[in-house]
Amino acid sequence: MPDMTALIELDRVEKVFDVRRRTGPLRRERRQVRAVDGISFTVPAGQVVGYIGPNGAGKSTTVKMLTGILTPSGGRLRVAGIDPSRERTRLARRIGVVFGQRTTLWWDLPLRDSYELVRRMYRIDAARYRRNLDRCVGLLDLAPLLDVPVRQLSLGQRMRGDIAAALLHDPEVLYLDEPTIGLDVVSKAKVRAFLRTVNTEQGTTVLLTTHDLTDIEQLCRRVMVIDHGRLVYDGGLDGLHAAGDSERTLVVDFERELPPVELPGARCERVEGPRQWIAFPAAASAAPLVAELAARHGVVDLSVREPAIEDVIARMYAASSTAPA
């Protein structure tokens, strides 16, 4: 039963690449790569979704299928009710796409001319174009760049230019494939703030892939983790901790040096003089452990360390790659 409110729908979508590899001077080996291996999810209008996973997980391949650049090998795919690969040009008017790795602007034309071309191609009416352009120029600091040919822009400047170009026609969905790759801290913050504004003010649905988890923390309430072409997690950022069986750490300073303490449901990770690091499941409460320790030994000081999101993700990637394929 299709979900009527869903803007993006994937049902067991697959993409298999036939790759030929040269194994000798004349011999070639044909191999199949399952880049996307049966992925299903839906995204309701107005949501900001993070799509993360290790290198080669199938993120870009998914985005290319969602834009109609690639045709799925199997499964069903709809964006705004449109089958992307069949009606690619019709869909193009309703989506915006930013590839962090390559520009959609015209390399030798000034930014202003690129935008003018976009306006005519998408038949954006003059008032709307003015409004959108002014907003993008203001929020992304593009004013000094408008007359510079794209090839002369720095990576961060070009990325901002690309993001603006993708939004001039008020797309319902915005896909961003690594929009913050190679940007400095200030540019990243600017891009994130801009995307947040676009989402809250225009209600634009955003799907972004990234390797920078700060992007996810600051933008996405929902995150999907994909590995080897399969969805291994889909939910809130908080839920990642539980799903990745991550651990919190109790750092305890005892009155004197002790052998590694043993507690039920926890394990001693490290001992350094009177200080010990005791790991316990992130979902469990620290209170009973603290009470137990204080009862058994003299405790001078104590702190709890939350797991870094990076570690949680790393653990999740490692776990899914050792699982039988």
Partner: peptide, 22 residues
């Protein structure tokens, strides 16, 4: 180099874009 991707996401025929490019 895969830059044809960027022409495929625009709402006009790819042939026209390739023919008119530069």
């Amino acid at each position: 180099d895969g830059t044809l991707d960027t022409l495929l996401v625009r709402p006009v025929p790819v042939l026209a874009q390739v023919a008119a490019d530069r």
